[in-house]
Simulated assay, not measured.
Amino acid sequence: MTTNRRMINTKQFDKYKAVHPDAKSLKYGPEMKRQWRKTLDEIVVPLDDELR
């Protein structure tokens, strides 16, 4: 199973929708992936580079 598939399988849209009633299910997954990629690129990768 790919990382993207595993990440999408962990989504908790019902909880997100409770806080953000206007949220659309079809937009939630792609946005979740964009935010995860941003976190990886801006925080995780620089930390890994710093440890080398």
Score class of each variant (00 low, 15 high):
M1D: 10
T2Q: 03
T2P: 11
T3F: 14
T3E: 13
T3G: 07
N4D: 09
N4Q: 08
N4K: 08
N4Y: 05
R5V: 07
R5P: 00
R5E: 14
R6D: 07
M7S: 01
M7A: 11
I8P: 01
I8W: 00
I8H: 01
N9E: 14
N9M: 11
T10E: 14
T10R: 12
T10V: 04
K11N: 09
K11A: 08
K11F: 06
Q12L: 09
Q12H: 09
Q12I: 06
F13P: 02
F13L: 06
F13I: 00
F13Q: 04
D14A: 09
D14E: 09
D14C: 01
D14R: 08
K15Y: 08
Y16N: 03
Y16S: 03
Y16D: 03
K17L: 06
K17N: 00
K17T: 00
K17V: 00
K17F: 03
K17A: 12
A18V: 00
A18E: 09
A18T: 03
V19Y: 02
V19A: 10
V19Q: 06
H20Y: 04
H20I: 04
P21G: 03
D22H: 05
D22K: 09
D22S: 08
A23C: 01
K24W: 00
K24Q: 13
K24T: 02
S25I: 04
S25F: 06
S25E: 14
L26W: 13
K27A: 11
K27M: 11
K27V: 00
Y28R: 04
G29Y: 05
G29T: 07
G29E: 09
G29Q: 07
G29W: 01
P30D: 01
E31R: 12
E31M: 11
E31H: 07
M32L: 15
M32I: 11
M32P: 01
K33M: 15
K33R: 12
K33V: 10
R34T: 13
R34P: 04
R34E: 14
Q35T: 15
W36P: 00
W36I: 14
R37L: 15
R37N: 14
K38Y: 10
T39H: 14
T39C: 06
T39K: 09
T39G: 05
L40Q: 10
L40G: 08
D41T: 08
D41H: 08
E42N: 11
I43N: 12
I43A: 12
I43L: 13
V44F: 13
V44M: 07
V44I: 15
V44P: 05
V44T: 14
V45H: 10
V45Q: 09
L47C: 06
L47M: 10
D48L: 15
D48S: 11
D48C: 14
D48R: 11
D49K: 15
D49F: 05
D49A: 05
D49S: 04
E50K: 13
E50H: 09
E50I: 03
E50Q: 11
E50P: 01
E50N: 03
E50F: 13
E50S: 12
L51R: 12
R52T: 08
